[in-house]
Each structure stands twice: as structure tokens, then as C-alpha cells.
Nucleic acid binder design. Structure first.
Lengths: 200, 200
DNA sequence: TTGGTGACAGGTTTCAGATTATGTACTCTG
DNA sequence: CAGAGTACATAATCTGAAACCTGTCACCAA
């Protein structure tokens, strides 16, 4: 209709994020996104093939926002791997809890992605597993951790801490004992990871 | 209306179970339960104070049905505690998966109970924790397991295996690698439980 | 040719009005 | 008088027509 600065994917993502926050994932529509940008909803479809793709892209960006904090811990060779693992898991809980609390609408969108296991969710998990694997590999290299297959072990650690990061269980993250419980589980896992290769 | 053998709680529970299986937890009504018993719905209220109480009682009975299998493993002093723990957790997964698969309607009812954490669900968890504690205590007594507080450790083991028993995550129980994954997690946990009391 | 528009088909959601369910009270029977 | 029934108020749920959303189109502007 009129000359505007050309719509780009980033602008659409930001607008979508706002719309999601305002209306929640259930009520947010592509028409709303268009309206927020002063544009028809068909314009949005020039940049994203579907509403699903749009939601995925928004969640991806939202998830990647505090990815670096976590990645920095995973890569921090100053901290001995066992402690690093502990800190990383604690930071993961803190980050997830903050997201769930501060941004419930976007968290709900992310949760939906996980339950229908969309590519964005799968990639997010793969990323986290990779970070875990980094820590474990470092530990195996410097001898502070024992077991052999880092990928399998990373998955086991991730699985054993499901309670603290799976969005479907977010309800429990506000319970008072949760941080302590994570510590106990961490200790148990670390004891296992440090143990000499067992007999059975 | 006519002389019948007097309605008792057990008969109501069985009828409710049938109705739940036929209609699912969302559509099952107290009137249906009455109809199944050839009785008015008000008669049901003579025995149960509310529909919620009735659903809880049904789930309780349904959950207790294979409780003994599990309890038998927990108590089997023939098996060394570490192996016993492994078997118990495997049996728990098998039992839960069977329930989810063979009885989806009642499983859904149970899942609902867990998400609104009703007394029945809480009691069920407490029961399982008690069984875990038995195994751990036995292991600590005979020296095959090391750590100190059995209740706290039981909770940690239960938490670390959330993925394999929480009804909200039942979707993942049919994935092919799940049994192997449980084995890996078990091994990790057992290594931790057997480890000499660690330094950090 | 990329990025935009308005109109539209088909499927889904919504909302008000009608139906059905829950839970209580009082009645009836053995 | 214990236990079942009928009647009923209130809350929840269904239904169907209207509104609305998604995704596509043919067309337009720079």
C-alpha cells in the first residue's frame, strides 16, 4: 500500500513473539502478526511457509537466546569437569525455570513443540546433549570422569535429569526442595561417573 | 425398585471401571455407572461422596492390582540389592507400559490424577518410594550399596528415572531404545550407589 | 523478481441457547 | 433406619450457525 522499510524475517519474528506474549499460543493468529506489522497476513506467508514454521522459528530464536550462557559453562576449562557438570545442570534448571516463569506464553509454545516433537525441539535437545558431551569428554580426557561412550553417557545424564528440564514437568520447578533435589541427583550421577569401571 | 443383592463399594468400583473403559474418563458419567448397575445415580452417592472420590478409588484399585508383583521383587532377599534395584526399575517400566498400552482409558484417568496431584497419586508414589527404600536399605545393610540416607536416595533414584514412570511421559515408552536407555541410566545410578563415599 | 495486496475456499473456533450431569433433599420401602 | 428412589437446583457440556483463521491465488508496485 505504501513505501515502508521492507519486511524481513527478523521483524516478523519479533512481532510474532509480541503477539504470542499478548494472546498466548492458542489465540495468536497470523492475522494478528500482520496487523502488528501494519501488513496483510498474506505478506507473512511470503517469508514463512506456514504458521507452524513461524512458531518454530520464534521458539528457536527464543531458546537460543540464553544458549550462550550455558555453552560458556560447558566450555569453561577453568572449572574441573565434575563441578562443571553440576553447574551446567543447575544453570539449565535456572534458565528453564526463568523462561517458564517470566515468559509463560512462549514457554507454552515451546512445550507444544516438544510434545509434537518438532524439529526445533529436537535440535534444542541435540544442542544440549552436545554441550553435555563436551563436559563429559573433557572429564574423560583429564581423568576426572571414567566412562567410555560420551554420547551415550550424555544422553543418560540428560534422561536422569528429565524432571529438571522437561517442559511438561515445569509445574514442579517452583516446589521449594527442587534445587536440593537436583543437587542430590547430581551427586549420585557424579559418583557414578567418577566410579572406577564397575564389575557388573 | 426391586430386591437386589445390596450394592457394595466393590461392585460400584467394577462398574465404574467398565464405564471408564467404555467411554473414557472425559465422557464417563455417574448416571452411566448407575445404569450399569441397574440403579439410580443417587444410589452411587450413598457410597461415594463425589465423582472425584469415585475416580480416585477406581484408580487406587487399578494401581494396586500389580503392586504385589513389584513389592515381591523389592522384598526378594535372594537377589543382591543392586541387581534387585535394576530388576525392580525394569519391572516398573514394564508394568507402567503395559497399563498404558492395554488400558489407555484408565491410564488417562490416572494421568489426570497425577497432574492435579490427588491423594491417590501421592500415595502411589509414596508406596513406590517405600519399596525403593527397602531395596536400598537392604543394600546398605549388606554393604553392597554405600550411601547414607535411604529415603533421600530413594527419592533421587525415583527422580532420576522419572522418564520411565511418569505418566505424562508415557509417549516415549514405546520408542525402541527405551529399555536399553533404562539399562544405561541404571548402570550409571548403580555405579553411583556403589561408589565409595566421594570426596566432593 | 521480490515483496506486497485483497479476495476466497475450506476447515476450525466461538457463542448463545438447549441439553445433560452433578450433587442435595426429601420420600419411600423393608 | 439403612439404603434405594424421585425431584430439583446449579454447573458443565453439547450443538449448530455465524465468525474467523489458514493457506492460496491472481494481480500489482518498485
Amino acid at each position: 500500500m505504501r513505501a515502508r522499510e521492507p519486511l524481513d524475517a527478523e521483524a516478523i519474528l519479533s512481532a510474532t513473539e509480541d503477539v504470542l506474549r499478548r494472546h498466548g499460543p492458542a489465540k495468536a493468529t497470523v492475522v494478528d502478526v500482520g496487523r502488528a506489522l501494519g501488513v496483510s497476513h498474506a505478506a507473512v506467508y511470503k517469508h514463512f511457509p506456514s504458521k507452524t514454521a513461524l512458531r518454530e522459528a520464534v521458539s528457536r530464536r527464543w531458546l537460543n537466546r540464553d544458549r550462550d550462557t550455558l555453552a560458556a559453562i560447558a566450555r569453561d576449562t577453568e572449572i574441573p569437569p565434575p563441578q562443571r557438570l553440576r553447574r551446567w545442570l543447575a544453570a539449565l534448571l535456572v534458565a528453564k525455570r526463568a523462561k517458564a516463569h517470566d515468559d509463560p506464553e512462549l514457554f507454552a509454545a515451546y512445550k507444544a513443540l516438544v510434545t509434537e516433537d518438532s524439529a526445533a525441539a529436537v535440535d534444542h535437545v541435540a544442542d544440549l546433549l552436545g554441550q553435555l558431551e563436551t563436559i563429559l569428554t573433557d572429564g574423560m580426557t583429564d581423568g576426572s570422569l571414567q566412562r567410555a561412550d560420551p554420547a551415550e553417557t550424555a544422553r543418560a545424564v540428560f534422561t536422569a535429569t528429565t524432571r529438571f528440564h522437561h517442559p511438561g514437568l515445569a509445574g514442579a520447578w517452583t516446589e521449594p526442595g527442587i534445587d536440593h533435589e537436583l543437587q542430590v541427583v547430581c551427586t549420585l550421577l557424579l559418583d557414578g561417573l567418577r566410579a572406577a569401571r564397575p564389575t557388573a
